[in-house]
């Protein structure tokens, strides 16, 4: 009887019984090691393709796993000493700018001009641009009494008193370097160890500086 005329039922019952199906395949499993016709060719091709693929895959793996590191690879750019120096200063200044914005700008303003009659300007101020020790000392201990900045007198009401809040040497170095180079100021930077030595020099001092004390410490800065 041709297949076309058989019903589903008939096709199904003309199929293999399950016990025969199991036995047949078990038998096939057992004879798999005996070389038979058509058996040899396929595995050879398989072994060849398999080998090629493993080869390609390992090359791909070696190229893409990035040494099993957590972070993606970054192009390592060899910086010249000059560039390194520029990058260091840039980072120092930007860190100083943040400290300034957080701690100083509320009085001295972000433009460094202060408030007339209340808070002295930092931009173009001889107190800032001459010796870096001046503002470092002021930041460390504070300042009271009257001072004259850029020809204007500033009063006693608001004393700088950063000392109340802990600030470390590197932060001071950063913020001092920033104010000495911002808003048209063009003085050289100050380093952490310099700050440390200034801190050590005035370690005994308990009260704030006065303007006169500062001027007497750095006479050449105020000579003009």
């Amino acid at each position: 009887m041709s297949i076309e005329k058989m019903s589903s039922e008939e096709i199904r019952s003309s199929g293999m019984k399950d016990d025969k199906l199991v036995d047949e395949h078990v038998r096939l499993n057992e004879i798999k090691h005996e070389p038979t016709k058509g058996f040899l060719q396929a595995p050879l091709i398989f072994v060849f393709v398999f080998g090629c693929l493993i080869f390609v895959c390992s090359i791909q793996l070696a190229h893409t796993t990035n040494d099993f590191a957590l972070h993606p690879p970054e192009e390592i750019i060899e910086l010249t000493p000059d560039e390194k120096e520029a990058l260091r200063i840039e980072r120092k200044i930007s860190s100083g700018e943040k400290i300034f914005a957080a701690r100083c700008a509320s009085c001295h303003q972000t433009n460094g001009l202060g408030i007339v009659g209340q808070y002295p300007p930092l931009a173009g101020s001889e107190w800032v641009t001459s010796d870096p020790g001046i503002i470092t000392n002021i930041i460390l201990k504070g300042l009271k009494g009257e001072i004259v900045v850029k020809g204007e007198t500033y009063g006693t009401t608001a004393a700088v008193n950063m000392a109340a809040v802990a600030i470390n040497d590197s932060e001071i170095a950063n913020v001092v370097s920033y104010v000495r180079q911002a808003w048209g100021n063009n003085a050289e930077e100050i380093f952490e160890d310099e700050v440390a030595s200034i801190r050590a020099d005035s370690a005994e001092k308990q009260d704030q500086w006065t303007g006169d004390q500062i001027i007497s410490m750095y006479p050449e800065s105020f000579a003009k």
Binding site: S106, C107, I115
Partner: peptide, 16 residues
């Protein structure tokens, strides 16, 4: 505002 009439909050709590 840190002048009289202002709250002066910024002096302690900072602009940020």
């Amino acid at each position: 505002k840190i002048t009289p009439g202002g709250g002066m909050c910024v002096a302690c709590h900072l602009p940020n």
